[in-house]
Amino acid sequence: MSDRSCLVVDDSRVVRKVARRILEEHGFAVEEAADGQQALDSCHQRMPDCILLDWNMPVMNGLEFLQALRKEYGPDNPTVLFCTTETEMSFIEQAIENGAQEFIMKPFNEEILLGKFAQVGLL
């Protein structure tokens, strides 16, 4: 049984599938959400250990979700790693200001994903 859980939030089914495969191979139990609102609902039901979070999504974007999550549950938990095509410095600064622990720029591969998870102490 997996002892860590990750919520993968991305409106792309392909990205969710790729991330799920990598994370499951490394012992994570993976849940999926296709937008920020679905992710918030999922957190209300069961809080994951970490969240891999896209930025641009319909309904509620990643930043709005992160702000709502931190407001409701405090600044530290769960660990949030953005995973986005937004690579301008201003986005990374906003991610830091709003309590994300890491920032992955798409396209990513297994090495980068696992490296970032290791950097924040998840591996």
Binding site: M89, I92, E93, A95, I96, A100, Q101, E102, F103, I104, M105, F108, E111, I112, G115, K116, Q119
Partner: peptide
Amino acid sequence: FEMQRGVPMQMLV
């Protein structure tokens, strides 16, 4: 790709 291999977000900024 090179930058993401090892540079934490805080250091990147």
